[in-house]
Simulated assay, not measured.
Amino acid sequence: MARPRLNWTAEPWSDDEPLECVMVVPETRDTATFIFRAPSGAWFDYQPGQFVTLDLPVDPAKGARGNIQRTYTISSSPSRPLSISVTVKAQATSIGTRWMLDHLQPGMRIKAFGPGGIFSFHRHPARKYLFISAGSGITPMMSMTTWAWDQAQDTDIVFVHAARRPSDIIFRERLEQFASRVPGLQVRLTVEEPEPFRTWTGYQGRLNSLMLGLMAPDYLDREVFCCGPEPFMQAVRDMLVALGYDMDRYHQESFGAPVATESEAPVIDDVAPDQDARAQVVFTASGVTAACAETDTVLAVAKRAGLNIPSGCTFGLCGTCKIRKTAGEVHMVHNGGISDEDIAEGWILACCSNPMGRIAVEV
């Protein structure tokens, strides 16, 4: 099929016209970027960070009845308006994305709706930004960063991204190329594990408050945009709250359910310690019960009660103060000193655990 000729007098694209796939770019082992143009030569007008909904003719044998609609963040920038791109990552339960990776080829046309969404730094102008993403949550951040690059703006961006392995980092080469040309973009990458037989010189481990302080020492002064799986964003929110960040300057977008309007935005009502709320810690092995505030740590309460819990770093890194909780709930924001398996079995780190009401610990 012939490529559409560029029409410099064309109108902006509207979703009355289908999109034509013109290129497929592999990004990682399970991720690809699909580049579309309008057959009429229309150009694309949107805010960096917004999304588009694709109408996909999925095979009914895959469990779908007719076409299905899937929403993807636009990974390209409106500063490059002659095409529009989405970058998709296959998940274990993917249907639409799996179809795109297996079947969508240049020359094919599909129906699309949008663009839309409220997740854009155009809506929240600031002097300095902190982008935090994981997995394919990097796509809106890439759109916003490309806009800043193309506009030659004097924007100060710290771009933090978390991935499982270095080979899973989407857009790594492009980000590093951007950062090597402008002083205002700092790229900070962390992986859970390095590749076998390959050197990794970046950060390693899950993103935590200690890492964040090294990556962006002035994080309290930055407007934060976050996108990724909900557990990742929850951990980021907990971390920022514990660090005293002004959460009115925090903005997030789940790549599972992008938000179209302010009225659709979910209310973030995270549980956080309240200095005016009373709590109680029962030290079962010592027979001591101590009253405290929710903002007190279990370690601090124990020390005031004359009890000794061995400790080291006091900020959730070394794991020395690990104790077992037998009742109640705590709010714990740690820096990697305890595993998910230990947490599931009832262990906590006393130095960074706040009692939410009445709790009991084996001390």
Rank of each mutant, 00 (worst) to 15 (best):
M1L: 10
R5Q: 11
N7S: 14
T9E: 06
P12Y: 10
E17S: 10
M23Y: 06
V25P: 02
V25F: 03
F36H: 10
D45S: 12
P48F: 05
L54E: 04
L54M: 13
A61C: 12
G63S: 06
G66D: 05
I68A: 02
T71D: 03
S79D: 08
S94H: 08
D102I: 05
D102L: 12
D102N: 14
M108R: 14
F113W: 11
F113P: 01
G135I: 03
I138C: 04
M142F: 12
S143T: 02
T155M: 08
D156P: 00
I157H: 04
A163N: 12
I169A: 05
I169S: 00
A179T: 07
S180I: 08
R181G: 01
P183I: 06
L185K: 04
R188W: 00
E193S: 15
T201W: 00
M211F: 11
D218E: 12
L220F: 09
E223R: 13
C227K: 04
P231Q: 08
F232K: 01
F232T: 04
A242I: 00
D246M: 07
D248E: 11
R249V: 00
Q252W: 15
S254R: 13
G256H: 06
V259I: 13
V259H: 01
T261M: 08
T261I: 05
E262S: 10
S263H: 11
A279W: 05
T289M: 13
A290F: 01
C292A: 15
A293P: 00
V298A: 06
V301M: 12
N308W: 10
G312M: 05
H334P: 03
N335E: 02
G337W: 03
S339R: 09
E345T: 05
G346N: 14
G346L: 14
C351M: 08
P355N: 05
R358A: 15
